[in-house]
Design a protein around this nucleic acid. Structure first.
Length: 269
DNA sequence: CGAAACTCCTGAGCGC
DNA sequence: TGCGCTCAGGAGTTTC
């Protein structure tokens, strides 16, 4: 599931291949993603991709045609650099072709999105997003202000894009374990000191995951097809019923927002 | 306003 | 061998 580390890994992998390159053609084999895919032929062909940027889990590809392509990978999306002659697989919905190769988007579950905007940061989907988790804006005073008056589960807060972006189920689960905080604990019942631990845990987990190319569970792959290796570092996610690495007790699981949340009932309070 | 339920989709894993 | 069921989950949308 692409979360911030997977999107950042994709950005870094893809950027050298398409930055400052001219789009020679586009194939949209399925235009029914989360929203209908716009007419990329008309928008992109002949233009130069000026950069590959990221805001939250959105990839932003500003084009010399006075607009920016916005790509979201949803749950199962991935981007690859593929030879033009390589025939597309069943869920390879979109090719953006360059002279020697193409940028190919695959998304089996089609929760992803491809959009076009003249002002991407002002786009309705992006304009109300919270701070980047690895930025200085995401600091303890900010998190404390967000948490102190709310009573939702702390895990819900971490996964709320209006509070902080990019933290999905995997990394929220791991950060809470690292900080020793129970995922279901109401946010207004966590001391500032413990919130500070959580803040550092979020930053550390995301930084480590980016360094390892993200987490590959099933669908995620890098631009060259390799997996990400952070899966080997997961300490609680997907391990309910197995043994806690810290105390040896059995990890439990509960549902928060219809999402599985593995935790250790002894190490996390 | 916040909070929770609902929604999109396909493949994996399971029981029989 | 294959059917039908449940589950996974990002995040926008709807409802209360």
């Amino acid at each position: 599931m692409p979360e911030l580390p997977e999107v950042e890994t994709t950005r870094l992998g893809v950027r050298p291949w398409i930055k400052d390159k001219v789009v020679s053609g586009v194939s949209v084999r399925c235009d029914r993603l989360r929203w209908p895919v716009p007419d990329l032929n008309h928008l992109l062909v002949g233009s130069t991709i000026l950069d590959v940027q990221r805001r939250a889990k959105y990839l932003l590809l500003p084009s010399s045609h006075q607009g920016t392509l916005i790509i979201h990978l949803g749950m199962s999306g991935s981007l690859r650099i593929a030879p033009i002659e390589a025939s597309p697989g069943p869920h390879d919905h979109i090719d953006i072709r360059f002279e020697q190769y193409c940028l190919r988007m695959r998304d089996p579950r089609r929760f992803g999105a491809v959009l076009w905007s003249a002002q991407p940061l002002a786009h309705p989907l992006l304009k109300s997003l919270g701070p980047e988790p690895l930025s200085e804006a995401f600091d303890i005073d900010y998190l404390w202000r967000q948490a102190r008056h709310r009573k939702v589960a702390i895990k819900s807060l971490l996964m709320d894009g209006k509070v902080v972006v990019g933290v999905g189920n995997i990394y929220a689960t791991e950060a809470l374990f690292m900080a020793g905080i129970h995922p279901n604990r109401p946010c207004n019942r966590i001391s500032k000191q413990r919130l500070a631990r959580l803040l550092e845990a979020v930053k550390r987990i995301l930084t480590q995951a980016i360094a390892k190319g993200g987490t590959t569970l099933r669908d995620f792959q890098r631009e060259d097809g390799r997996p990400g290796y952070f899966r080997l570092d997961l300490r609680v996610y997907g391990r309910a019923g197995e043994t806690c690495h810290q105390c040896g007790r059995k990890l439990k699981s509960l549902k928060i927002n219809q999402r599985a949340s593995a935790y250790c009932g002894y190490c996390q309070r």
